[in-house]
C-alpha cells in the first residue's frame, strides 16, 4: 500500500500540545498502530479525506505503540480512535469508524459543524 504523499502528519508527545492543542484550526488526532488491521483499512480513506479537507481541518497521526503517554492521557481503548479537538478541547470521538469515504468524512467533520472559527 504505497503512499505517494502523506496527508496525515505524525505527531508525538513532544509536539502534541503545540500542533494539536494550541491551534485555532479544527484538528483530528487519529490514535492508531501500524500493526492494527482496522487502521490499515482506514489509512487510504483517511488520506483521501485529509487531502480533500486541505487546510480547513488538520489530521494528525498518533502511534500508540510509541506514544503510550498520549494513549493513556486520552484513555484510548482501541485503534483506530479519532479524537476531534477544537481550540485544545476534545469535542468528539469516533471509535472504529467505517472505512468508507462518506462515513469517515461525516465522522471528522460533523463535530465541528456550527462552531465558528472566531468563537
Amino acid at each position: 500500500m504505497p503512499v505517494a504523499m502523506d496527508f496525515v502528519t505524525p505527531v508525538t508527545a513532544e509536539n502534541f500540545n503545540e500542533l494539536v492543542l494550541r491551534t485555532n484550526i479544527p484538528v483530528v488526532a487519529e490514535f492508531m498502530s501500524y500493526g492494527c488491521e482496522h487502521c490499515r483499512l482506514l489509512e487510504p480513506v483517511l488520506q483521501k479525506v485529509a487531502e480533500k479537507l486541505g487546510s480547513r481541518e488538520l489530521i494528525f497521526r498518533v502511534n500508540i505503540a510509541t506514544e503510550q503517554t498520549l494513549a493513556d492521557r486520552y484513555q484510548i481503548e482501541g485503534t483506530p480512535t479519532l479524537v476531534m479537538f477544537w481550540k485544545g478541547v476534545e469535542i468528539g470521538r469516533a471509535i472504529g469508524p467505517d472505512p468508507s469515504m462518506q462515513a469517515l468524512w461525516d465522522a471528522v467533520t460533523s463535530p465541528f459543524e456550527g462552531l465558528s472559527q472566531n468563537g
Partner: peptide, 11 residues
C-alpha cells in the same frame, strides 16, 4: 467492529 481492542498490556 472496525476496532482492535488495545489491552493495557499491549499499550
Amino acid at each position: 467492529r472496525n476496532h482492535s481492542a488495545v489491552s493495557s498490556q499491549t499499550i
